[in-house]
Amino acid sequence: MQNNEILVNSVRFLVLVFVQVLLLNQINIMGYVNPFLYPLFILVFPLNGNKSLLILLSFVLGLTIDMFGDSGGVHAAACVFIAWIRPVMLRSSFGVSYQLNTLKISTAPLSKQIGYILLMVFFHHVVLFSLEIFNLNRILLILKSTLFSGVLSAVLMVCTVLLFSRKSA
């Protein structure tokens, strides 16, 4: 990574944590629906970046969110998980071309971007809510939370990506 990228990613890390903790964690629609925007850091991490570094950063990111939310290690687990499966998700969403360094997420077709975001959000939320609720008898609550929070998170992420994508057109 170049210096510029390090700076951009550090700022993104901090901004996403602040937005999540100070703003989004206070939104509780219907008592349990809460959008999560911070995994966007993992989603838009440079495609040619070091994978081990991403996994490590995801752990720190999740643990920070956990610290603010008093939730043990559930966010850390969910983040590490999606950081690990990210290459597979990228391949299934954008095809093998992502490995050739020609692709930027923000220039891919919107439908593929949305597909990628939905996949990642789904896995993140499933791990997150399974660990947070941690009770197989409440599998319905896990699925319900995943569905509602997931849709909200995905919409929020798509909006953010659209808002901040620098299309040199």
Partner: peptide, 29 residues
């Protein structure tokens, strides 16, 4: 990558279990 993932995932699960069962000794609060 897998080993790093497994290690950090294990730590996270540990912290989670810790918060589920021993609510007074939490490391991250």
């Amino acid at each position: 990558n897998f080993l790093l993932f497994a290690l950090l995932f294990g730590i996270s699960i540990g912290l989670t279990l810790n918060s589920h069962y021993y609510h007074k000794t939490k490391f991250v609060n």
